[in-house]
Design a protein around this nucleic acid. Structure first.
Lengths: 335, 335
DNA sequence: ATGAAAGCGCTAACAT
DNA sequence: ATGTTAGCGCTTTCAT
């Protein structure tokens, strides 16, 4: 005969029976209702301890309506995600817990992820949108589900949004390189159809024009993929008027460029978009534009909560400033 | 009059009414029960689309018992976590979704996190344990909640466990340095009371003794904190018989050591525990012992599912092999 | 093949 | 201050 006994989970009814009180009294004790007599409360606590009772959150949520959960749909869970950390922290301060799920940079996965959160009736969703068609959110929003997008806006639907200031960021990067004597400055970055890619490329073109610098062959957007980066680098550094400085449009680009220029890293000034771990340990250290992840995460949570409290408030887009962190690569003089 | 109309969420009853069928029929359609007539099914689908109906998962779960969710309690969400990514992937293959929450390296937070998952009646929990007292899990395990620990065992309670092979790993690292001519090899790592720290330090001592190499002043365990690392480094590299090689017991130690030795990185051979992004871009590249995160995550999910299917099966501990990735720092010869 | 009714574990009106 | 009772939205016997 098996010794292993899968004990049935005790319910509130069991606790009530053991404590010799009514169900409602147990509920009151569990919810810390102050109107329970000291003696009964004691008996209930004893019964809870004796049975190792733990309330079923699903039932509580179902009955109450609210879940106390904020869903976070982010691009992936394996790589670091400082904004997710900030969301986690801020949520905790508001007694909310975070349900983190990944979208894997896949439009359909994003939809499945977000809809599953809706099905779970979370109190709101913070999403890092992929693609540009988010009309599927419309019914959820109408039903009162607070949705906040960050890093990029959701497409085709009005939601609260938290964005880093891409134009300002590009201005800072460009100006930094200019101040260090560069005039032939190139840009390699994401596809234009990716929001941040488009924003940054446009800002780069604007900066170049405003400074009266050459733009021909200086802008390279597309897939972040070694072959393409190699080609872009060859164009940028070849010819008789090679660029002396480069702005990399995202982290993968920065890293791939470093990998490819290798020992020549001291011969090309570079500012990379988005900070990354160990950027300071490379030689030269990599000068970057850093997002304020803490503020972005916190703001997203605050927008979510504000909408939750007042579903009729106008949709808001908050732009968060960025900073430039000089570490060496961006301070190299033109050769 | 406000145009904003917070539409009440439709329930299955609403769908039934619109479709002109019984509640049960809608349920059948939603659950893809094949015994529904084609015509009724059509009417129901139409009603669902018309109302933008989405079933309430909380209610389904409550009624069914199972949730389809695997809880993952990991140390943090901001830094990268390859194992979490692997858990996510493997779960998806089994039609499970992952609820990821952080423990923040805090024993009490871990407990709160895990218990909140239990309260949500997830189908099982994968935890990266902090501290060493996990007796609080006992009642949950008795109630049939599958719990799997990874990276370190849970303390004071028997659970399925997935561990990297720390002894093997240390043997590989030590032997690698030996083969490259080193005899004075030092170790700096975590506190002994941290499981991996203890395992690795013990294995290091064993290797040193087995090779007849000096052990005095060569083992430094404790808090990972710049001051302590600096002291340890001073001891290790000072004196008339300085170490020529170093094994770093975890990622933070590796990075902090690199930061402190700076330009001297080519004068001290080093193997670091745990791989990290950009280790290949540093000069010299950092030779590391890499865990097989994909296998660890996958195994954790499989153990979880196996226990779920058969709660009486004996508890199992799986040890996953590691690999050494040579990148330069571990192949330096003694000066 | 379809429907009526019970109940998952809890909270919230409404008594008392 | 405590108990009774009705649901939350769904799945699941059990009839038909």
């Amino acid at each position: 005969m098996s010794e292993i006994q899968r004990r049935k989970r005790p319910t509130m009814v069991d606790v009530a029976r053991v404590a010799g009180v009514a169900l409602r009294t147990v509920s009151r004790v569990v919810n810390e209702d102050p109107t329970v007599g000291a003696e009964l409360a004691e008996r209930v606590h004893a019964a809870i301890a004796e049975l190792d009772y733990a309330p079923d959150e699903r039932a509580r949520e179902l009955r109450r309506g609210a879940s106390g959960i904020i869903g976070a749909a982010v691009r992936n869970l394996s790589d670091g995600h400082p904004v997710l950390g900030a969301i986690d922290l801020a949520s905790r301060e508001h007694k909310m817990t975070v349900l983190a799920m990944s979208t894997d940079d896949d439009e359909r996965r994003e939809r499945a992820t977000v809809m599953s959160m809706c099905g779970r009736r979370v109190d709101g969703i913070i999403v890092e949108p992929i693609g540009s068609a988010h009309q599927y959110l419309e019914p959820e929003i109408e039903s009162g589900m607070p949705i906040v997008a960050f890093d990029r806006p959701a497409g085709g639907v009005a939601t609260d949004t938290v964005l880093a200031d891409n134009a300002l960021a590009m201005g800072m990067a460009y100006r930094h390189l200019t101040l260090h004597g560069h005039r032939r400055i190139a840009y390699i970055g994401d596809h234009d159809r990716i929001y941040t890619g488009g924003e940054r490329a446009a800002a780069f073109r604007a900066c170049t024009t405003a400074n009266g610098n050459p733009v021909d062959g200086m802008v390279h957007t597309g897939e972040i993929e070694p072959g393409r980066i190699a080609e872009a680098l060859a164009t940028v550094l070849g010819g008789d008027q090679p660029a002396t400085a480069l702005i990399a449009g995202n982290r993968q680009t920065t890293v791939e460029v470093l990998r490819q220029i290798g020992a020549n890293a001291t011969r090309l000034a570079m500012v990379g978009f988005d900070d990354f771990a160990l950027a300071d340990l490379l030689r030269p250290g990599v000068t970057v534009i850093a997002q304020d992840s803490a503020t972005i995460g916190r703001t997203a949570v605050e927008l979510l909560l504000a909408r939750s409290a007042d579903p009729t408030r106008p949709v808001r887009t908050v732009t968060v400033p960025v900073s430039l962190i000089p570490r060496g690569s961006g301070e190299l003089a033109p050769e």
